[in-house]
């Protein structure tokens, strides 16, 4: 085997570490994306019996965005097992308590419920902020593209640019500026 072929062989079977920035991303949509990398579905050598899944590091999980009124409409169910032990927690309450839990549950539920699922979840790292521990950071070689564009706030755009931007609406001549 030539040296180039040997390297290709290593590269094929090595685990790649991906970073995914969760800022302004819908966790339920991005879970379907993360799932593919965790299971190795993006690889041509994929087979369910083949342990070819990658590692995904999610950062900024505190800044995920839910659609519309889902923060106060989506409920997470838990049952203690005792009679009357059912509880429903709203998404924003869950996120207040643990900013990594929503994305973790989303990825967990996006995957098929088999014996492999819990082991696949071990390959998912979630961090609420931007900081990644150094021993994780040094392995990372790839970044997964975000699904949604991160919106810009108006006060973050410089004043000059706002003034210079082409205008669609003009005030009528008798309008009192407020």
């Amino acid at each position: 085997m030539s040296a180039a072929k040997r390297v290709q062989q290593w590269a094929t079977f090595a685990r790649t570490w991906h970073v995914f920035d969760c800022k302004w991303q819908d966790p339920y949509q991005s879970a379907n994306l993360i799932k593919k990398y965790l299971l190795g579905l993006h690889k041509p050598i994929y087979h369910p019996m083949n342990d070819c899944g990658d590692v995904v590091v999610c950062v900024n999980s505190r800044d995920i965005a839910l659609r519309g009124d889902e923060w106060r409409k989506r409920a997470y169910f838990h049952h203690t097992g005792y009679p009357g032990g059912a509880s429903w927690t709203l998404a924003w309450e869950v996120h207040n308590k643990d900013p990594t839990m929503i994305i973790k549950k989303a990825v967990y539920r996006a995957m098929k419920g088999n014996l492999q699922r819990r082991h696949t979840m071990q390959r998912l790292f979630i961090y609420p902020g931007e900081e990644i521990p150094d021993d994780v950071k040094q392995n990372v070689t790839n970044q997964i593209r975000q699904l949604r564009l991160v919106p810009t706030r108006l006060d973050h755009i410089p004043e000059e640019e706002v003034q210079k931007f082409p205008k669609v609406m003009d005030y009528p001549s008798d309008y009192v500026l407020k």
């Binding site: 839910l66 659609r67 106060r72 924003w92």
Partner: peptide
């Protein structure tokens, strides 16, 4: 306050 402090996007 409450749920309003988290990021929301719309369709």
């Amino acid at each position: 306050y409450g749920y309003k402090k988290f990021n929301t996007y719309y369709d």
